[in-house]
Design a protein around this nucleic acid. Structure first.
Lengths: 336, 336
DNA sequence: TTGTAGGCGTTATCAG
DNA sequence: CTGATAACGCCTACAA
């Protein structure tokens, strides 16, 4: 049978209240009594039942994390950041990932109700409106990479627009005039912002903007590969490609190489995210660096704060800066 | 205030027992009554409190997952497999990752006690013995990639030895006689097995085995990069490199290229894991494919089974097969 | 078919 | 300082 606080109390010759006080540091307990209780508890291998605790304390000590169907290193880095920060603050992490559409997110959200003290929700799919209807007002939450409209939620975003703008600006400065883009998923917020940054930079630089130069993609290597295929059929063919993320950039480079093109001599390529592997591919990939792990840890910090404040705090919309990392893949165009 | 089962009962003019029966499908309830209760519950937005449920039912509906400090795509794939399988079976996933040493694993293990119905533990660090002392006998568990000694635990392993053996055998068949290896972390079980497979294949093939050809590594790209640096200083220099994982293989290729060497013409390279990106790097990387996501989902399947059987089932030690994926990076040596 | 009442293991509020 | 005892929200015999 399971050993409960009663067993310890009986064995130590005290009441359950005293045992409880010892384990919670609440209320005073005479030192000898304390020692005896601790000794007995240890001998009996007593561990407080966390379920019973959360029932009466109305606190689970758990943070819920809802993630979409993420790929590769981005996913693991975000989790690493979240998990690390949560552990540091004494919280557990209840993870639910691979949610493709809103219905799945909402379902997962309901399933987590009551099991967590707060929620980190990453839902780059554009419709957050429906989400808000299913987010209990009482449950603290931090939104990650969402198209957040007003100041109704705590949110954390990457500076997608600024990063894309800066990278395209850099490509222009290198002398590339015709720049294609491999876009991210249709309804993805990050993807949309990066596309917007691309367009804005082209306009600001007085470069040509053509719809046919925006190739559809899906954030995967194979998607980038397929997009590069379409790129090859373009006429005239742009001199550079800006991919909405690194995975697609790498997939694209693979296809270009198969076609006998040399990056960056024939086509310059740049990505977004600066995943760890970007520095090691061939040629090393220029990218827009975002502190992925920090995105996760920062979200947890904010969430824990919101929980402590019992939601009586001021909601903030934070935007994490990006940084250009220039490597060989976007080298200056072949001089002529 | 929170809406409880009592509120629903009162509002519907029945007892809490009936409401409970409706929500659990336990016991018979007259249809009209059922409908009325459901309607009231819906209107009141009643959701059963999972904490109270698990307290009395002695079941949390949650699976604990303990992972070491994993890198990149391997990590995300395992999680994807675990999470998917858990969701499919109606379980939640409590994640705790980035555990470097045994102490941390043990601490996380204690912290999870009582919060989960079972445990998936991945602990490739060689000392499982200490782990067993801290695993409550009553808690079902499945060990992943552990150096499991006997049949005391349910376990799941990759065929590290067989995969490494097959790949090195393939390199030998291509005509490479001198083959170096970039090893994984010192105390890592998978790494040790892959090294053993490498050595066995060399011996079986009558090829030379030299300790200096085993370069230390740590499963990261930068580790592979550094190992390749040491490889370049070898004299005579082997014609091929077998890296204990893909990340290191990619890091190594990067360093070789910087040195002006062409893969596979000057040096053949092969990796292990076959992470998704392996097919898209330059040159495409030959690797040993393991169904990473399946490793995770299979573990969950086994765990759920163990939970259902209340640990009264026969423990099994399962080994997942690997498959050689040959791409350009290990092409035949330059003819001469 | 439905209701009553006794826990599940803790914490918290009072008295003592 | 310590001990009863009432919640916390729910499930489940046992009765009716």
């Amino acid at each position: 049978m399971k050993v409960t606080i009663r067993d310890v109390a009986r064995e130590a010759g005290v009441s359950v209240a005293t045992v409880s006080r010892v384990f919670n540091g609440s209320g005073p307990v005479r030192e000898p009594t304390r020692q005896r209780i601790l000794e007995v508890a240890d001998r009996l291998r007593y561990v407080p039942d966390s379920t019973a605790r959360s029932l009466i304390m109305r606190r689970t000590g758990t943070l819920g994390v809802l993630l979409p169907d993420l790929y590769g290193e981005f996913f693991s880095e975000v989790i690493r950041g979240i998990d690390g920060a949560a552990q540091a603050r004494g919280y557990h992490v209840l993870l639910s990932s691979s949610h493709a559409n809103r219905n799945e997110i909402v379902a997962a959200l309901r399933a987590m109700r009551g099991r967590v003290d707060g929620l980190v929700v990453m839902s780059p799919d554009i419709d957050v409106q429906g989400l808000s209807a299913n987010l209990p007002e009482s449950l603290p939450a931090v939104l990650l990479n969402c198209a957040v409209n007003g100041d109704a939620y705590d949110s954390l975003n990457i500076d997608n627009f600024g990063g894309a703008f800066a990278m395209v600006q850099h490509l222009l400065a290198l002398g590339h005039r015709r720049i294609a883009m491999i876009a991210g998923p249709e309804r993805n917020h990050d993807a949309a912002e990066r596309l917007r940054g691309y367009r804005a930079a082209l306009e600001a630089g007085g470069a040509e903007v053509r719809d046919e130069w925006v190739l559809p993609g899906d954030f995967t290597e194979s998607g980038g590969h397929a997009a590069a295929q379409r790129f090859l059929e373009l006429d005239p063919r742009p001199a550079a490609i800006f991919a909405a993320n690194d995975a697609m950039a790498i997939g694209a480079i693979s296809r270009l190489r198969d076609a006998g093109l040399v990056v960056p001599d024939d086509v310059a390529v740049a990505g977004f995210d600066d995943i760890p592997i970007a520095a090691y591919v061939s040629p090393p990939l220029s990218s827009v660096q975002v502190a992925i792990a920090e995105l996760g840890s920062r979200a947890v910090e904010r969430l824990v704060e919101a929980i402590a404040m019992k939601n009586q705090h001021v909601r903030r919309q934070e935007v994490l800066p990006t940084r250009l990392v220039i490597r060989a893949s976007c080298g200056a165009p072949r001089s002529r």
